[in-house]
Amino acid sequence: MSISTASFSFVCDVVRTESAIVLNAGKEYLVESRLIPLAKAAGHTDVDSYVAELQSRRNPAALRAVVEALTTNETSWFRDADPFNTLKTTVFPTLAKSRPSRQLRVWSAACSSGQEAYSISMVASETPAISGWKLEVIGTDLSEAMVKRASTGEYSQLEVNRGLPATSLVRHFERAGAGWRIHPSIKQGVSFRTANLTRPFPPMGKFDVVFLRNVLIYFDVQTKRDILRRVRDVMAPDGYLFLGAAEMTMGVDDAWDRIPAGKSSVYQARPGAAARAS
């Protein structure tokens, strides 16, 4: 049985209101397949009856579970490779020249189950220019379940097989039953918390580097513009922004300069951009 038009419309409205993610027509199968487990757990035989209960009761926790179920949590270690090579060969060494405090802070936004945040920490540990420095990586995600999952630092064999080089597995992980656990030397500077990018960011301080990769593609232009503006406000003036390969600031928020770096590009806020925006 397919989800009804009315139920699909209601779910789309909830997801857009809570996360600004737009689900267009044609995503009915995705919505139904993601909500079937929730429906069954709530004692329903189909998604329509489950949605009807959501509409009548408007339980915040249940609605949040719907949003989390429909949030894409696609991730892997060192995803796309080039950004992490750029971080190691260009960004970290450049920042090292202007940080007498020998400290760096990185934000991994929409971090899913934590692979990106831990990948950043691994890269830092292998970058000679910042050897011995204090690194803080904060990973955030809309999903409370993903944040809890990431905080454990434990992954299955299947998960470590997705993009993790064998040398990194040997060097930075230890056995945990049938799976693997991030080594304390990599995990100690990494923390996770919930954050909805479409809402005011929680107090996190300023960042030298922000990874905002493969998430803006899910938002409309106005939401992208607002997120990029607020990201500028939490970055150091000479900080670097990493976006996904299919994402750019051009035509969305022109207060950024695109800088070729390695085989990819990074972005820096134009001088005075934050002041003009405020």
Rank of each mutant, 00 (worst) to 15 (best):
3 I>Y: 04
3 I>T: 02
9 S>E: 15
18 E>S: 13
26 G>K: 08
37 P>A: 06
39 A>F: 06
40 K>I: 10
41 A>T: 12
43 G>Q: 00
52 A>T: 15
53 E>I: 08
54 L>S: 05
56 S>F: 00
65 A>Y: 00
67 V>R: 07
69 A>P: 00
73 N>E: 13
74 E>P: 04
77 W>R: 02
79 R>H: 13
79 R>T: 03
89 T>I: 08
90 T>K: 08
111 C>E: 06
114 G>W: 06
114 G>P: 07
116 E>Y: 12
117 A>F: 14
119 S>W: 05
134 K>Q: 13
140 T>I: 05
140 T>P: 02
141 D>F: 00
147 V>K: 02
148 K>F: 06
160 V>N: 09
162 R>K: 15
164 L>M: 08
166 A>N: 11
174 E>V: 15
179 G>F: 13
180 W>E: 10
182 I>F: 10
183 H>Y: 05
188 Q>Y: 08
196 N>K: 01
196 N>F: 00
200 P>T: 03
201 F>R: 10
206 K>H: 04
209 V>N: 02
214 N>P: 03
215 V>H: 01
220 D>G: 12
224 K>A: 09
226 D>T: 11
227 I>P: 06
231 V>P: 06
241 L>V: 09
242 F>L: 06
250 M>I: 15
254 D>C: 11
255 A>M: 14
271 P>N: 09
277 A>V: 11
